[in-house]
Design a protein around this nucleic acid. Structure first.
Lengths: 169, 169
DNA sequence: CCTAGATCGTAAGTATACTGTCAATCAACA
DNA sequence: TGTTGATTGACAGTATACTTACGATCTAGG
């Protein structure tokens, strides 16, 4: 026999994975901004700074693959980081299309100073759960994000993107 | 003794709850848009339509509480739904500030037609996990979102927001 | 060498998702 | 009653997050 048509109610939305992911993301950003309000950094800008710190001299396209942002979005993110003097762009000698990214002194400093606030934020997001449940949730999420990587418009390419660096070293 | 300072690397970001929530949200939106591409509806617009269907005659402020969006954001969402002729706004007689929201015939029709695609999208998001893990993840997420509700800038007020409706019925 | 295709950064366009602020309106209290 | 304070929808401003497109540049194939 045919399956019952799903009910058209808001309660079905409340239990839908998509809704819960959106809601949790809203909450996570809100907590991050609250804990880090004395620093002039958004979650996305923070991730970009960390990635540049880890891979100095990376270019914007590869950076977008490393933190899984869209290339266009990243352009404006970098612009803002540059305006705040946290990031510096230098043209690459071998390829005139490319601009290499480096942290400025201020960028390295704010990164060092903001870490405790970020740690507090990350902890607060999971705080309502029992410790065992926190671990379980993170484990499942890591799995799911990884297995769904290709479904995203901008898949994460943490390793691929870095072949230009360190190849010679 | 003092705890070790956390390492400043991109790998720490990959394991951070905030990063995983953002990434999962990206993936969820991407899957939704793919499954629903023949319908001219975003996830947010879909949620708004469902909520208006469940609560006909709701006003924009209450709607924002029911689906946990910011009031400002919702304004433009409604505008777009109105431009597509899925939603209608009528001034309330008792309160000249309020505009009441109703689905149009097209709005009710697209809602009916899009449901299967939305169901497919929701299923696809969790598909990579084993069935037991899907249940576990959803259970933990429902808990976490609920317990963190007040941490969000726009807490969900599913019940409060509806006191103006149905009180008389 | 020189053109075909790929890649880089950028730009314009759309849609969330917030922050404020504002005028109009309403509700409640002195 | 009349004024204070709250609420509603609207607007401006900032920041993601995506799409498509385009010029500049690089790389490979002939």
């Amino acid at each position: 026999m045919p399956s019952k048509p799903p009910p058209i109610t808001i309660d079905a939305v409340y239990a839908a994975p998509g809704y819960l992911f959106r809601r949790m993301q809203q909450i996570a950003v809100s907590i991050f901004m609250e804990e880090c309000k004395t620093f002039d950094l958004t979650p996305v800008q923070y991730a970009a700074l960390i990635a540049i710190h880890t891979h100095p001299g990376i270019d914007a396209t590869r950076l977008s693959a490393v933190i899984a942002f869209d290339r266009s979005t990243l352009g404006s993110v970098i612009e803002r980081l540059q305006a705040k003097d946290f990031v510096e762009r230098r043209p690459a000698l071998e390829d005139k299309r490319i601009k290499l990214l480096y942290l400025t002194k201020s960028g390295a400093a704010i990164l060092r100073d903001i870490i405790p606030a970020v740690e507090r934020a990350q902890a607060r997001m999971l705080e309502p759960l029992k410790p065992a449940d926190r671990k379980a949730l993170m484990g499942l999420l890591v799995q799911l994000v990884d297995l769904n990587n290709e479904a995203s418009r901008v898949p994460l390419r943490a390793d691929d993107a870095l072949e230009h660096l360190g190849k010679t070293g």
